[in-house]
């Protein structure tokens, strides 16, 4: 998901280009944050500062928006982000066992990123795929009807 680490000037240039492409209307904030998140893997302080300047929005405001949505992150994440549904329908369908297997397999707890920066393990609220619960999403790939036994095989698909 995340590409190579960018810093300083690169981030500022990226933000500038994004604001040029999207325009500096307040309504463009979320689409721009999405793109930054996709490019960097997260939304850095540097990016917020630059965005605040370019869009004439207080950085506190941008930070509030960036932390409000689960699909955005203000912390660096691993190359692959796993989002496991924590809502009731997936839970009832056996989600707890899958979640436990995931944590064991990765050696990570909720919200953690592996030391080799490969994985970030998150939970998410309902993804609207309750018909095929338990559900998890890795990067942009959706997995339904997941059983604990399938977990190692799924994880192997990612480098």
């Amino acid at each position: 998901m995340a590409t190579e680490v960018k810093e300083g000037q690169d981030i500022r240039n990226m933000v500038r280009t994004l604001v040029q492409n999207h325009g500096d209307e307040k309504a463009e904030l979320i689409p721009i944050l999405h793109e930054i998140n996709r490019e960097l893997g997260y939304i850095s302080d540097e990016a917020i500062k630059e965005l605040s300047k370019r869009m004439n929005l207080p950085s506190s405001h941008i930070y509030s928006v960036a932390t409000f949505y689960r699909m955005l992150s203000t912390e660096p994440r691993g190359r692959h982000v796993i989002q496991f549904c924590e809502s009731a329908p997936c839970h009832v369908a056996g989600g707890r066992l899958v979640w436990q297997k995931l944590q064991r397999e990765l050696g990570l707890a909720k919200g953690e990123t592996s030391q080799d920066d490969k994985w970030t393990l998150l939970t998410t609220s309902c993804l609207g795929l309750c018909g095929v619960g338990p559900v998890m999403v890795i990067d942009n790939d959706i997995y339904g009807n997941v059983t604990p036994e399938q977990v190692p095989g799924i994880l192997k698909n990612y480098e």
Partner: peptide
């Protein structure tokens, strides 16, 4: 001055300054 803002949402909401 727009220094204060809120991080996260719901029960996790925290009052923070700037970008935390």
């Amino acid at each position: 001055n727009y220094t204060l803002g809120f991080e996260e949402r719901g029960a996790d909401s925290l009052l923070v300054a700037d970008y935390n």
